[in-house]
């Protein structure tokens, strides 16, 4: 039973790391600010979520679990607020997004 939980936790940590790394590559690779914001969204939602779930599986008893849930909830509530405020400030200060044009096809 213990080894099953350990395996599940390792799997969660691994997927979380993969999503975080992909987001990190995305923030370097994408062409403009607005598209980079989506890459950060990946690391904030599923990347952080999977890593925290992986940690929760390691200590499923005590207060540690509750604190990890608290951190997860905070990340999930805070990250959209911050990215919305950032995008709004950028658009209002005239930072024009790169847009995809149909006639390029």
């Amino acid at each position: 039973m213990d080894s099953v939980i350990e395996f599940a936790s390792a799997l969660c940590l691994l997927t979380g790391s993969f999503f975080c790394l992909s987001g990190g590559i995305g923030i370097i690779r994408f062409p403009d600010f607005y598209t980079r914001m989506h890459a950060v969204g990946v690391t904030d939602t599923l990347g952080a979520g999977m890593i925290l779930v992986g940690l929760m599986l390691l200590r499923p008893e005590s207060l540690v679990l509750i604190k990890l849930i608290m951190i997860l909830l905070m990340t999930l509530f805070i990250s959209p607020t911050a990215s919305h405020a950032l995008a709004k400030a950028a658009l209002r200060s005239g930072c024009a997004p790169l847009l995809y044009r149909k006639d390029k096809e």
């Binding site: 999503f19 992909s22 987001g23 590559i25 995305g26 690779r29 994408f30 062409p31 403009d32 607005y34 598209t35 989506h38 890459a39 969204g41 990946v42 939602t45 599923l46 997004p97 790169l98 847009l99 995809y100």
Partner: peptide, 19 residues
């Protein structure tokens, strides 16, 4: 998430940013 990560690895030609 899976769709965005797929396009991170596929590269910039496959994305179509839209407002």
């Amino acid at each position: 998430n899976i769709s965005v990560v797929k396009h991170v690895w596929l590269g910039n030609q496959t994305i179509s940013p839209t407002l």
